[in-house]
Design a protein around this nucleic acid. Structure first.
Lengths: 128, 128
DNA sequence: CGGCATCCTTTTCGATACTG
DNA sequence: CAGTATCGAAAAGGATGCCG
């Protein structure tokens, strides 16, 4: 073993690199319009599918399903199915989800707070 | 005057509705992967275009330009051009941007903190 | 009611080339 | 170096229909 260093060319910090790329992946999973809105709304209280759909408004059936799956896969929400007719499915934020929700709350608050600042910036933009 | 109420059919809370849709628009402007990453990096210090590009990594020339414009339009960053050769353009976070950055910091922290929780959730997902 | 699959449209994105 | 424009590929998104 040994004279040929270039064969095992994997850098010693390969683990770090992997964790980093995972963090990036997760970050883009949550850093998007629908995911954050869902977290914000389902964070208010446990809701069923159609409630969420109505509360959020403007989200399609498909998008909601899709995003809920991703959130569930990442351990942010839990999905509880009641085997009734008609079916009833409830979504609840996990502890990790709640933690993220406080962050999202901050974003919503920020948006409200800087609303007029942004409108001004938009008017100034371009007509310098 | 008026027996004809239905002519001015604009609801009294038309302003509220407008502010709401604006808030939604701004929210989706900032609630996306690249915008948030840019805010996070340019928040560390004033950076020029190519620095940002290198620091963020994985973002294309075009995407960076595009997102920087949107952020500027919303008053989150300022753009300073030095008329030198070669040109030098520096981007800095505004006060509003700084405020948002603290929120984004929270999101980055959250991601790091729950990394292993998410990995576990992902393994469990589907093989129930 | 909620989920999944399908088709089709729209948007996003990367690569490339050209300008000041 | 930074910005803009264009083009084609890829992804996201909406609408619909069928199933349990």
């Amino acid at each position: 073993m040994g004279t040929r260093q270039e064969i095992s060319a994997i850098p010693p910090d390969a683990d770090l690199a992997r964790a980093d790329s995972l963090a990036r992946e997760i970050f883009s999973d949550i850093a998007n319009k629908w995911a954050l809105l869902i977290i914000e709304f389902v964070g208010q209280r446990t809701m069923r599918f159609s409630e969420l759909r109505d509360e959020i408004g403007g989200i399609s059936h498909k998008m909601l399903t899709q995003n809920l799956r991703t959130l569930e896969r990442n351990g942010l929400i839990t999905r509880k199915v009641y085997a009734t007719i008609p079916p009833r499915v409830e979504y609840t934020l996990t502890e990790a989800g709640q933690a993220l929700r406080t962050v999202v709350d901050g974003m919503c608050g920020w948006t409200q707070h800087y609303l007029s600042h942004i409108e001004t910036a938009r008017r100034d933009f371009g007509q310098v």
